[in-house]
């Protein structure tokens, strides 16, 4: 682990050269600790609206930890702490959102392993609406259908909405989890290796879905799969040992990376 702090100037950030992109989230000087163990060092990143931002890097580099700071999921782990600021459209998510559940309705999350609730397909999608106080059954039913259509799952499940979500295949379950996250109309969707447990066909369906979703949402995706990052993302941030080594336009990162470490990683010399 790096014991010395790396100053912001050391981080190559070529996305600042791209003008006219609205910034959805901005992360400044973020350090993150599990107890006394520091996991993230001086993270500085802008997330551009309606783009897919990919976070890549070897296992244990802090990319998932970073993703979970963005909707404050790390708050549930005792002993963690964070310094620096993370803003969602100018609002500090750690200091200006006293209610983390309100924040999480704006920033949704899809996990590595599909984790549908042991409930019906309908109830899975409706869950987020219900816990956030929507009681009108007609509104819920309409939202469920609309959301499932957005996730391209409607045709596959419309006849078995009241059946258990466990009856779906792995890929369908993961798309159900994406639909579940979409139902509460978030602005940003965090995806933590959403396709890592899926077969190639299901993976490509998820990737198509991501490409479609970015029209309306801002997406941040953690992935171990270089090709996937190259295929789906607009911007890529390369994490290494808790530090962002390089960020920028995905094409540039994958063709002309500035840092040697980045090149070594994307060409498969380590990781």
């Amino acid at each position: 682990m790096h014991k010395t702090k790396i100053s912001v100037d050391n981080i190559v950030d070529n996305q600042t050269f791209i003008p006219n992109y609205p910034i959805k989230m901005s992360i400044r000087d973020v350090d993150f600790f599990y107890g006394s163990q520091q996991a993230l060092y001086n993270i500085h990143l802008d997330i551009i609206e309606n783009q897919v931002t990919a976070l890549i890097g070897p296992s244990g580099c802090g990319k998932s930890t970073f993703l979970r700071t963005l909707n404050r999921m790390n708050d549930t782990i005792p002993g963690t702490s964070l310094t620096g600021t993370i803003q969602l459209e100018g609002v500090d998510i750690y200091n200006d959102f006293s209610d983390t559940s309100m924040l999480r309705t704006k920033i949704g999350m899809v996990f590595q392993k599909s984790n549908p609730f042991p409930k019906s397909i309908f109830e899975n999608v409706a869950y987020g609406l219900k816990v956030n106080g929507i009681k009108d059954k007609a509104i819920i039913a309409e939202a469920v259908e609309e959301t499932l259509q957005k996730a391209y799952l409607w045709d596959e499940v419309k006849d078995k909405l009241d059946k258990s979500a466990f009856l779906l295949s792995g890929g369908q379950q993961q798309r159900l989890c994406i639909a579940r996250a979409l139902a509460i109309q978030p602005e940003v969707i965090l995806m933590d290796e959403p396709a890592s447990a899926l077969d190639p066909i299901s993976t490509s369906k998820i990737e198509d879905l991501i490409a479609e979703l970015k029209k309306n949402y801002t997406i941040i995706i953690v992935t171990h799969n270089m090709q996937q990052a190259a295929r789906v993302s607009d911007t890529t941030a390369f994490f290494y040992e808790g530090v962002i080594i390089e960020t920028g336009d995905t094409k540039k990162i994958f063709t002309k990376p500035i840092k040697q470490k980045t090149e070594d990683y994307i060409t498969g010399r380590f990781g």
Partner: peptide
């Protein structure tokens, strides 16, 4: 009850009590 279920509920904006009563307890 798998922690991933609680995580999913939390990420959908449920509070601790809702997670317990609607996800953990039924499971």
């Amino acid at each position: 009850v798998p922690g991933s279920l609680a995580d999913a509920a939390l990420a959908l904006g449920a509070n601790k009590w809702q997670v317990t009563s609607t996800v953990i307890l039924p499971a």
